[in-house]
Design a protein around this nucleic acid. Structure first.
Lengths: 256, 256
DNA sequence: CAAATCTATATGTATAGACAAGGTTATTAT
DNA sequence: ATAATAACCTTGTCTATACATATAGATTTG
């Protein structure tokens, strides 16, 4: 299970007499191995003692190197078990446009998400290009409205390849984030994503669903999820009512 | 200059027999001192040797504690000089809407900023409320247009109190960020900020300056800068052309 | 057979000491 | 007086060691 020791350290070039610190060389080596997918998420790094004796360096120096990776969020250590490559974090709060529920609840409102539609579609040219799949591939399509106190706040359309032929579970529809949908129905797991935030105007359909007049300015977020091979596995488009949504960020670290 | 040793360590309660690690207690102590403004930005922490001997602990343990603060960005260490409390970072890339120059240059375009107006105004009711100052206080007012290849991209209006009666330097006008303007002309230094991002439509004036038709959707960013006492010292409003600006963010750490 | 205990192994914390390298200040030589 | 040098202080790197603590598997015990 832990696959300890299955990884090969021989290709590492550590120069103990270099001006570059050993811990830094070592950290960069592991970082490279992870980036190049020679060490996959979940896999264990060699133990600290193994690494130390392999390179003839102190265990503390190894720990210093690994602590850099821990700080970067690329690996995590478990006392008594080992050190493992982390799953890349998705659904980050980069734009803070996700995590509706928490944000809405914090303002004392009642959050809810309503599924308008969930069906299997055949990919047209545009979707095939976006997901990197052949024409007429079967895909899942979702239309969702997020409300606060029954007032529409956001409207989302999401596509993911329909590989597993699994039925759509009710539990998935409670908070159907793009990454959980992709994880459930696609062949591979999402490990990275791209988000693009734009401003736009509502179309006729969007105006109707959000209950605003046509051409109202809105936030438009396009999100693409990728697997380990950088193949897109899910694509989503979210529209946030501009008159109801603000993105706030604070700098500085003082209390109060 | 370095004020080494001016800070008192006696109020720290470090329990060497606690289950909580010493380095953690020590890090939390310094964090608290910084948050409560007992250690001010620019001030030096006691030297590692001083701290170690004061508490009767190893220097490596002290270094472990300080490294936590360094990782958090609250202090920075300089070899040969000492460890200092960092200036809270402003103009963060939270929204990535600042740092025009770098972004525009990276796309092979020619960035430029043109000062439309710079004058001293008397604060009206709204501005007095925003800056927390009496009515009719003298303030500096700037109007700036940022262009890429001579095409307008953003339009900014900025206010800051005019405390120092200093003339406006040409150098300030090259890239007049809100925090540098405030630092130059206000009594106090900005240490924290709030940014709010919204979508809006252009007014008549904004349309003219940005060269778009009236009512075009735009990003609207309102930024307030605060000093140590949480008093607002500068206020700015930026408008970004929605048809020319995208905010992109990537998750995951794989190359290419 | 199942539960408790032991044992080996992993990371976590802490120590004391050595030397390197950057920075400041005092001293010395010109 | 000025410039080069030396002494000293700071953080940075690295080692070797010790013990603590969590985990998993083997062993003993009921």
């Amino acid at each position: 299970m832990s696959e300890q020791g299955s990884f090969n350290l021989d290709q590492a070039e550590i120069d103990k007499n270099s001006v570059i610190p050993i811990y830094y060389q070592l950290a960069k080596f592991f970082e490279k191995q992870i980036r190049q997918r020679n060490l996959l998420p979940g896999e264990a790094l060699p133990t600290e003692t193994e690494i130390a004796s392999h390179f003839g360096i102190s265990r503390m120096t190894v720990r210093r190197a690994i602590s850099e990776l821990v700080a970067a969020g690329m690996v995590y250590a478990q006392k008594g078990k080992g050190t493992f490559v982390a799953m890349p974090k998705l659904d980050n709060i980069v734009f803070d446009l996700n995590n509706f529920y928490e944000e809405i609840k914090q303002k004392g409102m009642k959050p809810n998400s309503k599924l308008l539609e969930a069906k299997i579609v055949r990919s047209d040219e545009l979707l095939s290009k976006r997901l990197g799949i052949p024409l007429n591939t079967r895909c899942l399509f979702f239309r969702i409205v997020i409300t606060a106190n029954d007032e529409p706040l956001a409207y989302e359309r999401k596509y993911t390849v329909y590989a597993k032929q699994k039925p759509i579970l009710e539990s998935e529809l409670k908070d159907p984030s793009l990454s959980s949908l992709a994880a459930a129905h696609s062949d591979s797991l999402p490990v990275s994503s791209k988000k693009v935030l734009m401003v736009s105007r509502t179309t006729e359909e969007e105006s109707l669903i959000l209950g605003v007049s046509r051409g109202t300015p809105v936030f438009l977020m396009v999100q693409t999820l990728y697997d380990l091979e950088r193949k897109p596995i899910a694509w989503g488009l979210s529209i946030f009512r501009g008159d109801r949504y603000k993105l706030t960020s604070y700098d500085g670290w003082y209390d109060e």
